[in-house]
Design a binder for these strands. Sequence first.
RNA 1: GCCGAUGUCGUCUAACGGUUAGGAUAUCAGGUUUUCACCCUGAGGAUGAGAUUUCAAUUAUCUCCAUCGGUACCA
Length: 506
Amino acid sequence: MRKVRVRFAPSPTGPLHIGGVRTALYNYLFAKKHGGDMLLRIEDTDSARFVPGAEEYIVESLNWLGINIDEGVGAKSPGTHAPYRQSERKAIYRKYVDQLLEKDLAYVAFDTPAELDTKRAEIANFQYDSSTRSLMTNSLTLNGDEVKSRIENGEQYVVRIKIEPDQEIKVQDLIRGEVVVNSSVIDDKVLFKSSDELPTYHLANVVDDYLMEISHVIRGEEWLPSAPLHVLLYQYLGWTEVMPEFAHLPLLLKPDGNGKLSKRDGDRLGFPVFPINWLDSKIGETFSGYREAGYFPEAVVNFLSLLGWNPGTEQEIFSMDELIELFSLERVSKSGAKFDYEKGKWFNHKYLQAKPNIEIAEIFQKVLIEKGINTDFSKVEKIVSLVKERANFVNELWDQSAFFFVAPTEYDAKTVQKRWKDETPTQMTELIDVLKEINEFTPENTEEVVKEWITSKEYNLGGIMNAFRLSVVGEPKGPHIFDIIAVIGKDETIARIKSAINNINS
RNA sequence: GCCGAUGUCGUCUAACGGUUAGGAUAUCAGGUUUUCACCCUGAGGAUGAGAUUUCAAUUAUCUCCAUCGGUACCA
């Protein structure tokens, strides 16, 4: 079997969206599973749609996720099939265009976009193909000298593939099986345009995959309709023996309604659709990314890996190495997957719980510093251990733990009404005296002493505890109250109770 | 319109002719915690429709329907 070489070939027309990330991931998993190479090729054959910064964005995103490029753009070593940007491969394609022209498998066409529009308006379901090419301005309807002189005069032209009608074209797809298409429904696609001396995607991807010795083309389902054209191109160029195998991945759909997940869905629905933040400088708008939203790359990879594939077991949490071990194209599903953001959160929650507190504390301390809070690392670590189970993301930790750092200024009205009775201020004053007497302010000591006091006074346990919590936290939430006061200390605890006595119901 | 692909709980999916159609997530309820969350237990929730083949169809074939994709000098 030949060496596995796959490529991820995005076009730099904007940020890489999460569906593209999944395609890259599946390519990577497949390559690594078979000990092959993962290439990154930039398909920038549309000079008009080029967006500066998009390429760097793609490389940075893949790096963040741990999808390592062996060869091509963003790879550590230069690679043996350079260059890897199609705009830098201009000279290469011309040769194959000429080859097709010589063999009469392609032809030159001069029709302008305006003329094509006119034809489309004139003829219903117009398609540039064997049935209509004789009506158009091209090297099949013009004589040789005319064609020559037009080109010499600098007239713009395109090269179109010449497709024989009524042929059966078979595409073998690793996920979908055999797909058969009649050649009559394929139009004479443009392969090359003189305006920028660049091929279109169709020709470029076939030529590059051939020259780069790609063994498997794993790409989104939106390419399935043009796969027969690509197969034909391999035939025309005489490369059927080394044609890569195809696998067309199901699409990632938007969570509400139907349709492909798109750029604006994310911020519209309140979750990212991009791996990392993307600043669209044209409109001055930032689209949010998973990295900045607080996701762990491992969680994103895990979540994405299961959107369209599963190993057939009930395991849900996988490391990258496990995914590589288990991945197979045969187990990729055929139908589109709706993007379920809630499940994504759950994955991050799982990874957050599994992470050592010390690692989380390192990230969280940075968040605290940004908020102007300088705290002992060991204290941050302790707080993380107390609150992390109720967070999905590191940046939710602040909401869960702010009261450790800042005394409450407001008291939850509902709780006040329910838990702050007429006798409460007196009881809280007594509590202060009780706490004052405790020298070692550990959770064990304070709990024992406070509970003894409650028992001896025959107070209602719930009444005291809830008022105590309200005083310290301001809300009916958080870890065990005795764990909290051990962290904030005796003085702060007493100060908060005093403050509560003074401020509640006054 | 034409061409192609795809239809299993709300969502991601398992079951590759014989299962009470399984799991996860989400939702709801109970337990736990005298708080919240985590956690535990439980509940409801699906084979798009109709034929055909078969002793037996989620699974095979056909028709219809629906959804998505393609139909550009975009990728």
